[in-house]
Structures are given as structure tokens and as C-alpha cells.
Write a protein that binds this DNA or RNA. Structure first.
Length: 322
DNA sequence: GGGGTAAATACTTGCCT
DNA sequence: AGGCAAGTATTTACCCC
């Protein structure tokens, strides 16, 4: 009697895996979700909606005041803000292509030759390295996909950091940049506890679902990523807001899922399918009009699956009541 | 609209070599 | 290591009420 196990794809499903990130006793003001602290970045995000609660303790932006009397232009002591999503963290300089000095005067032949050599070296230091070019392209991909899926900034940053680690661990040779970039982004959303379905990533990526999953598994294993098994309740806020159901129904959906989890009725079933069914069942119970077709399309789960799961959820819930 | 079903497909696991 | 078979979940494409 074998079963499809959606909760075992990180190879080591243990209770202790869930404690990698410190769990705060706070809850999100927006959606009441669990708040996850990311100590390494001085950030706290909501596990449900990805909302950033505590922005960085360190301000990496320029300082918008002058330090010398009469110096009205030089209001910045630092360069551009650093970010994970620039291949050199935004710290590079550029040497212009024009053969003119800062005042616009043309340069002598000797100086021109020297500038040419400088450019050559500048070029070599900055982008010659295959790894750097690799990062550049991957970060572009990550940013593009994240925009398409409307993912929060911290998620993008995490994805960038993961990808960088993958490159540094030399995981890339023999694998496609897009595949690994997509996998990094997927892993990031899982780590932040606001998961999206793999198919969503495959839709906005040039790689197919299969490749994404393969790359994801590889990434997770090689980097020793501790990622919690997918929890159906994590999908509830997403689906609920897309379908515009009441808070009451949303709460009920969570309860249905909690009961199902306690009864072990969820093992082997797809988390998104369960969440979709719970929303549908809850909407029915609170007399809200919600068609299976509507839920099916936002959750990316077939009507058949919703029907099957929602009957099960109701059965388990009813058996539990007495 | 909901609900049912059969065949096709996807994914996992265990077994084998 | 990788191929293969078996078992389960999910989707697809019909159907009826």
C-alpha cells in the first residue's frame, strides 16, 4: 500500500525541521497569519501573505542630509543601496566609453590608449567571470518572474541569496540557469511560508514543471535547506482573497483543514487541492455562492479533486462533531 | 449549476540488476 | 545507477440530473 507523499520531498521530514526560523508569538495585522523572523536580515515577514512587518534595522539607503556647510549637492555619503539582486551587489563602477575627461575635453592619443587598457581590465574584473555573468542573468530572471507572480521583495531577496549560494557551491555546471533560478524562487516562497504552486512558476518560466522540481530537489538537498512540508492552510488566505469570501468562511476553512490534519486525512493529498476544497466547503456552509469552477480556476485544481476532497473534509468534520 | 465515471497522466515507491 | 512495475492522486473528457 503505497501512497503519494507530498510532504516528504525534502528527504527528511522531522518535527524539528520546522524550527529553523524562530517562531514569534506575534500574528500578522493583515491576515492573522504566523510571523516569521529572519534574524540574518533583521526582518520579520508574515507567513501567510508575505507582508513585511519589521523593515531592516539598518538603513542601507543614502543619507539625505548634508555634512558640510554650503555643500548642498553632496547629500550622500554612500552609493546606491545594496541589494542581493545585483550581481555585484550594486557596488561596481563604470568607465565611460567616450574619449573625454570629466570636463569634456578630448584626450591625447597616449591617454586614449591608457583608457582603452583600463576599460579592458575594468571589463575583465567586472563581468568576465562566468559566475558573475551567470548571476546577472539569473537575477534578471528571478526579478522578472517575481514581478509576474507579484511576489514580495523579501522573497526576491531570499531567492537571490539562494541562487548565489547555489553558484558558490558549484551546483550550476550541467544545469540550466533558468531552471535553477526558478527553483530558487520557488524555494524562497516556501521558506517564507507563502507558497505558490509549482505550475505557476512553470507558467512564467521558460522551463517546464518537471525541470523546476528536479532543480528544486537538487538545490534543497545540496544546500541542506530545511523547508517545512507544505501546509494546506497556507493557501487559504490566497484563495480566500482571490475569491472574495467572508472572514467567517475563511476561518471555517482553516478549521476544516485543522480537523482533517488531526485525523490524518490529509496525508498523500495535494495541499492546494485540500485548501481549495476547504474554501469551497466553508463557503457552502456559510451560504456564500461559490462555484466549484471558480475555485478550480483560482486554485489550479480540477473540479473532480475539489469534489472528492470536500466530501472527505465534511465527512471527517461531521464524524468529529460529538 | 452539481455530481458521477472511465481512461489518461503524473508521481512515488519498491524491487531488481 | 537506472529501469521497471505497481499503486495512488489528479486531470481530462464525457455523461446525466
Amino acid at each position: 500500500m503505497t501512497q503519494t507523499r507530498y510532504d516528504s520531498d525534502d528527504g527528511q521530514v522531522r518535527q524539528s525541521d520546522t524550527t529553523t526560523e524562530a517562531v514569534a508569538a506575534r500574528s500578522c495585522p493583515e491576515c492573522d497569519g504566523r510571523v516569521v523572523e529572519h534574524e540574518d536580515r533583521g526582518e520579520a515577514t508574515c507567513a501567510e501573505c508575505g507582508l513585511v512587518l519589521d523593515e531592516d534595522a539598518i538603513d542601507r539607503g543614502p543619507e539625505w542630509r548634508s555634512f558640510e556647510d554650503g555643500d548642498r549637492d553632496g547629500k550622500s555619503r554612500v552609493g546606491a543601496p545594496t541589494t542581493e539582486l545585483m550581481h555585484d551587489r550594486g557596488l561596481s563602477t563604470n568607465i565611460g566609453w567616450r574619449d573625454a575627461d570629466a570636463y569634456g575635453e578630448t584626450l591625447s592619443a597616449r591617454k586614449r590608449a591608457r583608457m582603452q587598457r583600463l576599460r579592458t581590465w575594468d571589463e575583465r574584473f567586472r563581468a568576465k567571470d562566468a559566475q558573475e555573468r551567470n548571476l546577472k542573468q539569473a537575477f534578471g530572471e528571478i526579478d522578472r518572474m517575481a514581478s509576474a507572480l507579484d511576489l514580495s521583495e523579501p522573497v526576491r531577496e531570499t531567492a537571490g541569496a539562494l541562487y548565489r549560494r547555489a553558484v558558490e557551491a558549484e551546483l550550476l555546471p550541467g544545469r540550466s540557469i533558468e531552471g535553477m533560478a526558478t527553483a530558487s524562487l520557488y524555494a524562497a516562497t516556501r521558506q517564507h511560508g507563502a507558497p505558490r504552486r509549482v505550475t505557476e512558476f512553470a507558467d512564467v518560466s521558460r522551463v517546464r514543471k518537471k525541470r523546476v522540481q528536479r532543480a528544486y530537489r537538487y538545490l534543497k538537498q545540496e544546500l541542506g535547506l530545511a523547508i517545512e512540508p507544505e501546509d494546506p492552510t497556507r493557501y487559504v488566505p490566497q484563495f480566500a482573497s482571490s475569491l472574495d469570501v467572508s472572514d467567517e468562511a475563511e476561518r471555517l476553512a482553516r478549521e476544516l483543514l485543522d480537523v482533517a490534519k488531526r485525523e490524518g486525512a490529509h496525508s498523500g493529498k495535494s495541499p492546494a487541492g485540500l485548501a481549495a476544497a476547504a474554501i469551497y466547503a466553508a463557503a457552502n456552509l456559510t451560504n456564500e455562492k461559490l462555484t466549484q469552477a471558480a475555485v478550480s480556476s483560482v486554485a489550479d485544481v480540477s473540479r473532480v479533486t475539489i469534489r472528492d476532497r470536500y466530501q472527505e473534509l465534511l465527512d471527517v468534520y461531521a464524524a468529529r462533531e460529538e
